[in-house]
Design a binder for these strands. Structure first.
Lengths: 195, 195
DNA sequence: TTTATTTCTTACCATAGATCAAGAGAGATT
DNA sequence: AATCTCTCTTGATCTATGGTAAGAAATAAA
């Protein structure tokens, strides 16, 4: 009798489902477990669906020609994760999705989504909100990249994801910020000295 | 008898509307004209709806504390333009929308959207595609900002918007790319020298 | 515990792009 | 034609961040 406390909570809160309806959905779940450093997606593959992160932590990143990784997104418990383009347009992904910690994922596949849609009155509305939140988030990131120094971007990062900095190695934070690990190290030293 | 050739084309192509249905929608249009250097939106205002650009050219930009402009998006004929966050979440915008050329806009207000939805079978699908295209575009921009030099970003810009570079002053291109006008000038000189 | 491996820090130098200042064109305006 | 204003260019310098290399610290493996 598997339980998915986070996903259950998510269904109840966002989709206003009753307990009994939640169980109907539980039955459809084909959970996916990925151990640390395992991959959920690699370039060239089509990302089949979006995943709900029940537990653990993953990252979505690209690899540029010169061999450098650029982290697009982290996803910890209660987050949704996918290469949206690949899922929606059914095209090969350009990205990697790799587990940073052992992670338990719930694939939001066709059947599961249909069921939620069937049981929830505000399914569509929620999806729209999700997409718009995503866009808002991307816009903020672009704004930061256009206008802010490495130091400010780092401060914004820890403001936005206070716990993440303790769960991922520093070089991944640097990669997310678009700077080298050495630079991040220096930024942190300067910040420590000033206070 | 106003005609909107671009918008008409757009309705027919994207929403599969018949000519007679197009006329039903024409009747609802409250066109908005903005002359060059006029503003469609300023920070603090709520962006009421998305606009279809029938003709002209505009830019959406933010102003950072240190007084620098950062262009988020250009929009020429046949483009949609809005501060999506502000429209969707009904919250005050942080952005300016300013006309670069005299521009004729078609506000996609509540009534107009309802009418299109009523008359078009694939309205929802189209909206979804629009949102996903937007996300894809933002992701590509983030990737570029994270990984590419000013020169490469400039080359990508003229590849993506071949005509735009001739319609906007160079300093606006620089602002879009996240570099200074001086730097862009030098990038262009270097490119010219090499070929 | 000892040895590897990975991550982080630091120092030194290199480079891209920013800043400042001056001038050159190109339209506008008078 | 003369003056303004705006845009673009160029040179000289400055600064933030990158690159390289070495060592320290932490973590995992033996």
């Amino acid at each position: 009798m598997a339980t998915y406390p986070n996903f259950t909570q998510y269904l109840i809160e966002k989709f206003d489902l009753s307990e009994s309806n939640v169980y109907l959905i539980h039955e459809l779940i084909k959970e996916k477990y990925i151990s640390s450093e395992g991959f959920l997606l690699k370039p060239g593959e089509i990302c089949k669906h979006t995943f709900f992160v029940e537990s653990g932590l993953l990252r979505l990143y690209s690899l540029s020609e010169n061999g450098k990784e650029h982290i697009i997104q982290f996803a910890a418990e209660n987050w949704l994760l996918s290469d949206r383009d690949s899922v929606f347009f059914r095209e090969p992904s350009k990205f990697y999705i790799e587990a940073i910690e052992n992670s338990l994922l719930i694939p939001l596949d066709e059947y599961l989504i249909k069921k939620i849609e069937e049981l929830s009155s505000n399914f569509r509305k929620n999806n729209e909100i999700l997409l718009h939140n995503h866009i808002r988030h991307l816009n903020q990131r672009i704004n930061l990249l256009l206008s802010a120094s490495a130091k400010i971007r780092y401060l914004e990062f820890i403001k936005l994801y206070p716990d993440l900095q303790f769960r991922v190695p520093q070089w991944m934070v640097a990669s997310y910020l678009g700077i080298t690990p050495e630079s991040l190290s220096r930024v942190r030293r300067d910040l420590a000295n000033k206070s």
